[in-house]
Design a protein around this nucleic acid. Structure first.
Lengths: 240, 240
DNA sequence: TGTACATCAGTGAACGCGCGTTCACTGATGTAC
DNA sequence: TGTACATCAGTGAACGCGCGTTCACTGATGTAC
C-alpha cells in the first residue's frame, strides 16, 4: 500500500505536473463506475496518487470539479452533434437522424459525462458558463430542426422548430436514460436502443408530413421503422 | 433539541406504534428534497423522531428501505396508469394520451417515488418483487399500445405494440426527466411539459397513420399539436 | 379479574470509518541578476 | 554559467463530522393461566 504510493511518487517526483487533468480523468472513471453521487473528492485524489489536500490547488471543492466535468462534457457533446449534423449533408432527414444516433452514442460511450451533465443534480442554470455550453449544444439540435421545418412539404403546416428540437431531445434522452446507459441501471430491451430511437424519430417525422421512404441516392443501410408487411418477426415479436 | 425529542417521546410513549410507515414517509420527504442519493438511514430515523438504531427493526439496511419505496412507487404508478387508461374509454387515442399525461403527473407530483424507481440506481432486475411490480406497470402501457395497434387504419401496416409502448415510455420519461421534475434540476421550457408531450405523442400517432383530428363527439378541450395555419405564435415563438 | 411471563419495538452508548477541509511545511521549478 | 530567491504544487498530520452498524438494555404490550 504505502510502498506503492512512494513508488508512484518516486516515478513522478514531488510535483505531479498534470494533476488537474489527472483529477478530471480520475473523477470521470469514478463517476462512470459509481454514479455522479457516489464519487468523492478524496477518492479522486487517491486515484491520482496524490494526498487528499492536493486537489484544493486546482478546484475550490467537489462541486467545482463536477462542474468542470459537465462543462467539458457539453463541449464534447456539442462537437459530436456538430459533426453528426454535418450541416445537413447529404440530406436533411438523414443528417437529422444521425444527430439522434450521436446523442445515443454519447450517452452510451460517455456515461460519466452524461451523468455529470444531466443527472448529477447540479444546477446548470445557476452557472453561466455551464449554461452557455449547454445551450450551444442544444443550438445544434435546434438548427437542425430549423432546417427540417423549413422543408415542410407543401400543403402541411410548418412545424415550430423549437418544438421539434425539444421533441427530438426528449426522445433521445428518454431512450438513452432508460435503455442506453453504459452502466448497470439500464433496462432490458428486445432490440438495440439505436434501432428503437431511429424508428421513433422516423415515425415522428412522418407524423409531421416528411417523406421518410427516402434517399434513393444514398446507401440502403437502415431498415424501415415499421416492417413493410406480413407477420412481424424478429426482436419485436409477433403482434396479435 | 433534546427536550424536543423527549417531548415527542412523552407524547407517543416508548413505542412508536407506526414506525415502519413513518420511516417510509420520512424517506420520501428526504428523497424529494435531496435526491435518492442524498438520503441517509440516520436522517430518516431522526425525522421520525427515533434513535438511529430503531430502523433496523424494520429494514435490513438503507437499500431495503429504498427498495420498499420503489416497490410502493411502482404500485401507485400502476394504479394511476390503470385509472388513466380506463380500459380505452371513451376512445383509444384519447385514453392513450391520458396515459401519457398520467405519467408526467406522476413524475411531477411524486418526485421521490420517481427518483427511487428510475434514478436511484438500484438494480431493478435483480430484485424479483420489484421487477414484477415494474413490469405490471409497464404492462398497462403495453396493453394500451396493443389496443391502439389493433385499430391501425386499413391500408397501413399494423405497428408492433411492444415498440409503440417503448416509444411512448421513452417520450414520457424523456420529457419528465428533462422538464417535468418537481425539483430544481429541471430545465426551463417555453411551455408546459404536458403540452410538449401531448404534441409529441399526437405527431407520433399521426406518423403511424392514426387520425388525430378526432373525437367530434368528445369535449373540444385539447388544442391541436401544430397550429393550424398562419404565423405560429405563443410559447413556441415564431418560426423563421 | 388479576398476575406472571414472553415478546419485541425502541434506547442510547459505543465503535470504526471515510469524508471534507485546514494548516504549517517542503521541495521542485523557473527566473533575475 | 552559476547563484539566490520567489513561487507555488503537493505533503502529511490533524480536526470535527455524520454515517452505518452493534450491543446489552429497557419498558410497553399482549397472552396464558
Amino acid at each position: 500500500m504505502s510502498w506503492r504510493k512512494e513508488q508512484r511518487r518516486a516515478e513522478r517526483g514531488y510535483h505531479h505536473g498534470n494533476l488537474k487533468e489527472a483529477l478530471l480523468q480520475a473523477a470521470l472513471g469514478l463517476i462512470a463506475e459509481k454514479g455522479a453521487a457516489g464519487f468523492t473528492f478524496a477518492d479522486a485524489a487517491r486515484m491520482a496518487g496524490v494526498s487528499p489536500a492536493a486537489p484544493y490547488r486546482h478546484f475550490r471543492d467537489r462541486d467545482e470539479l463536477l462542474s468542470s466535468i459537465a462543462q467539458r462534457g457539453f463541449e464534447q457533446f456539442e462537437a459530436l452533434l456538430t459533426q453528426a449534423w454535418d450541416d445537413g449533408r447529404p440530406d436533411t432527414v438523414t443528417a437529422f437522424e444521425r444527430v439522434g444516433k450521436a446523442y445515443l452514442a454519447f450517452a452510451r460511450n460517455e456515461p460519466a459525462f452524461y451523468s455529470a451533465m444531466f443527472e448529477s443534480g447540479l444546477p446548470v442554470d445557476s452557472n453561466p458558463t455551464l449554461m452557455a455550453a449547454s445551450e450551444r449544444a442544444f443550438a445544434i439540435m435546434r438548427a437542425a430542426a430549423e432546417r427540417l421545418a423549413a422543408m415542410a412539404p407543401p400543403g402541411t403546416t410548418r412545424p415550430p422548430a423549437m418544438m421539434m428540437a425539444l421533441h427530438i431531445w426528449s426522445m433521445a434522452h428518454g431512450v438513452a436514460s432508460l435503455f442506453g446507459r453504459g452502466d448497470a441501471a439500464r433496462r432490458k430491451l428486445p432490440m438495440s436502443p439505436e434501432d428503437l430511437l431511429e424508428a421513433e424519430v422516423l415515425i415522428y417525422l412522418r407524423g409531421l408530413g416528411f417523406p421518410t421512404d427516402r434517399r434513393p441516392e444514398a446507401k440502403p443501410a437502415t431498415p424501415p421503422p415499421v416492417p413493410p408487411s406480413g407477420p412481424a418477426s424478429g426482436p419485436w415479436g409477433t403482434p396479435k
